[in-house]
């Protein structure tokens, strides 16, 4: 299963490192990363493969959310199908 992680917030050192460390620890493979600064906000979007993850989706979501709180960022993980169904026919 593929999921999309979005990180939105004020830019700072170590955002990608923090998120990718969690992913590596949980055996989640990063397939694609794009990042941009939109209206002064750091926006990172990652496509990840969670089919071999060592923890459940809920646990991963909670870990990311917790890290987001520490870094004062919003970090979300969502099944990619919500984006596919909304934007692709």
């Amino acid at each position: 299963m593929k999921a999309v992680i979005t990180v939105i917030g004020k830019d700072r050192v170590g955002i990608i490192a923090a998120v990718s460390t969690i992913l590596a620890d949980c055996n989640v493979n990063i397939l694609d990363i794009s990042q941009t600064i939109m209206r002064e906000f750091f926006t990172m979007i990652m496509l990840v493969d969670i089919s071999k993850a060592t923890i459940s989706f809920t646990e991963l979501a909670e870990k990311l959310e917790k890290k987001g709180k520490e870094l004062a960022l919003s970090i979300r993980i969502q099944h990619e199908d919500i984006f596919n169904s909304m934007h692709r026919i």
Binding site: V4, D32, S34, M38, T43, I45, E80, F83, M86, H87
Partner: peptide
Amino acid sequence: MINPFEILETIK
């Protein structure tokens, strides 16, 4: 991959 603007549109 879905482009970032579409992803952000959904999240917004």
